[in-house]
Design a protein around this nucleic acid. Structure first.
Lengths: 213, 213
DNA sequence: GTCATCATGTAAGCCGTTACATGATTGC
DNA sequence: GCAATCATGTAACGGCTTACATGATGAC
């Protein structure tokens, strides 16, 4: 989970841990904390695995200034780096900027592709799936759709099994759950349809018009 | 989480661990497993705390026969108990039926009342809130409503902050999230309204006027 | 000089899972 | 006898959180 999120966020540009955490937090939405106590060890792990690598902060990169938003702290950190870290001297207490390696990119693709996503994992994958190939993406959507349809059917048969002997709170909970699931399925159908318009599973649109976007 | 679910399920009738697990699973819905490895230690813990107690299985209780549904296994277990466990001899490998103590009931009320519920915890509490007093229940609903409203507002301002620079997957995810949250708020409003019809917050509707929170 | 913020980590502990061990009983 | 199911646990392990330790810098 953390691994997926970190790789996904780094895919968009090099970042240091502190800023990375913010991005991960807003990626996962409210309620998912991702503390430093799990983020830094995760980064260390990923580095050992060769999926991320410490890089020199490039101010001319695709995400030009991964600044924190606070001018003062930002400047302070920059100066500190300029003075004490001309070239990753290890051990100094300043920023360590990480970037994805090619192995890391591949791993991200694998993580999105591998099945068995729950509610939250799916949301993260969806937020990241722009980076993976259309087939993987479509498979993800259809896998999710099937899972939801299965859940819905199971829930309904289970409800039929108990014979409606639920108090009103549980009944309401049940109805809400079914409603949300139904809507989610419709939502996924929309995503799938959009996917097939942009990428009609024929990777070479030789005769067709422009791919838009 | 497990504690809450176990106490809640036992509130409806005495059960042994194996059956308890099934009930907890269907209470938490699909995707939440609650393995034996966490259930049995939890039961032991609750017993040490005096919140549950081993009881003799009463076939004349409010939930008459907490049978597993499998006739063969059920009969087998019954016979085993009849032969080897005339009166909880401890250590034999047969059923141990647990029931809630009065302390356990009180604890259940506390757990539902204490704030800080996430998505899943709220669902469990809602499924269980029939057992707690109307004021606690109403507080739960309103707390949840406020939390969702806050989330929605935060998400919207955050979306405005990024300036709409999201790819279509993230945008869709965002829209879905907002939609679900809005519907949930409306749903909670319905629950709250229903609550106030049944219990208009004035336990003694004699002299006092409107509480008008 | 003190406080807040940025920044990186380590240590202890909680909570839960998987995998394993044990054992009774039924049905084949 | 063997497999499946019911039934109760223990052990090892993993992931994530909280709390702590460290330290730089700018603002007041």
């Amino acid at each position: 989970m953390v691994e997926l999120a970190v790789l996904g966020v780094l895919r968009e540009g090099d970042l240091h841990g502190y800023e990375l955490r913010k991005r991960v937090r807003e990626l996962l939405g409210p309620g998912s904390s991702v503390s430093f106590g799990s983020l830094y060890p995760a980064l260390a792990r990923l580095e050992r695995q060769g999926l991320v690598r410490e890089v020199e902060p490039d101010e001319s990169g695709p995400v030009p200034i991964p600044m924190t938003g606070s001018l003062s702290g930002e400047l302070a950190a920059f100066r500190a780096r300029a003075r004490r870290r001309p070239r990753t001297p290890r051990g100094a207490r300043t920023r360590k900027v990480f970037g994805l390696t090619s192995a890391g990119e591949a791993r991200l693709g694998e993580l999105v592709a591998e099945p068995g996503e729950d509610d939250r994992t799916f949301a993260v994958k969806l937020a990241l799936c722009r980076w993976c190939d259309p087939a993987t993406r479509l498979a993800l959507f259809e896998r999710r759709r099937a899972a939801l349809a299965g859940q819905l059917a199971a829930a309904r048969s289970s409800a039929a099994g108990t014979g409606g002997a639920l108090d009103r709170y549980r009944r309401s909970l049940f109805e809400r759950e079914a409603d949300v699931t139904e809507r989610d399925i419709a939502w996924l159908d929309g995503l799938i349809a959009a996917e097939q318009v942009t990428d009609p599973r024929t990777p070479e649109p030789s005769t067709t018009g422009g791919p838009s976007s």
